[in-house]
């Protein structure tokens, strides 16, 4: 078994208006940064995973996303897996 570090990025699905993102965008514009746009606000989740290989680790994290960490009705997610440095 190896130790992996997983990060999950959760965002509202593209079809759903991200009102937090819109509000922050207009605040940025009022702070004289009109060059910034398309602000989207999501969640960042970190986990450690014990698995024989990276593919299995990814599989387990995706299962966690589908069961609990995200709601497919309103959210999309991306999983990133890195092996923790050998001690």
């Amino acid at each position: 078994m190896k130790n992996y570090h997983a990060t999950v990025t959760v965002t509202l699905r593209k079809a759903i208006l991200d009102v937090q993102g819109k509000t922050v965008e207009s605040a940025l514009h009022s702070l004289h940064m009109p060059q910034l746009g398309n602000v989207r606000i999501g969640k960042h989740i970190e986990l450690s995973v014990q698995a024989p290989d990276a593919d299995t680790a990814r599989e387990v994290v995706r299962e966690a996303c589908d069961k609990l960490l995200t709601n497919p009705v309103m959210e999309d997610y991306a999983v990133n897996i890195t092996e923790e440095g050998a001690a």
Partner: peptide
Amino acid sequence: LCEAGLLPGALIRNAHL
């Protein structure tokens, strides 16, 4: 009930926050 899948859809942050 929506999270449990007993009802369709989801409830998210109010549009005006």
